[in-house]
């Protein structure tokens, strides 16, 4: 996987079955690392499922830097996912779906009371 590593701080990594999706994201996270002096990637041939990522560092082994870049990317993804799930939850709270197939009666009661509150609010607004 790792090619041409006479000097551990300058390496090219060849990833099979990957493309721009991962390589470009990894190039971004690697470039954000202050230890990286150069990071780029290339796809040697469009019909090969292979991408080469070149990393040159200020001295640390390039493998470790790439591993950290992957780790960073993974943590960012986790953050994206949790933020997204929370945003969808907030949206659903703000815009409750029409009461359709809620089996739990307790839930329905809550929904109904919420609905009646909303209706009351609307009526209040009209009076004002």
């Amino acid at each position: 996987m790792e090619l041409g590593s006479s000097d551990a701080s300058k390496s090219t990594f060849s990833l099979t079955d990957e493309d721009h999706t991962l390589a470009n994201a990894l190039r971004f996270t690697s470039n954000q690392d202050p230890r990286v002096t150069f990071c780029g990637y290339s796809i040697p041939h469009p019909s090969d499922n292979r991408v080469n990522i070149r990393i040159q560092t200020t001295g640390e082994p390039a493998v470790d830097v790439l591993k950290d870049a992957c780790q960073d990317l993974m943590l960012m993804c986790r953050q994206v996912r949790s933020t997204f799930v929370k945003a969808v939850g907030d949206f659903n709270l703000r815009n409750p779906k029409p009461v359709k197939d809620i089996q739990d009666k307790g839930d329905k009661a809550v929904q109904d009371s919420k609905m009646s509150e909303a209706v009351e609010d609307l009526q209040d607004m009209h009076i004002d």
Binding site: E18, T21, L26, L66, C70, Q71, C77
Partner: peptide
Amino acid sequence: LEDKCERV
């Protein structure tokens, strides 16, 4: 995307 990172 997380799985891809993990694989690498």
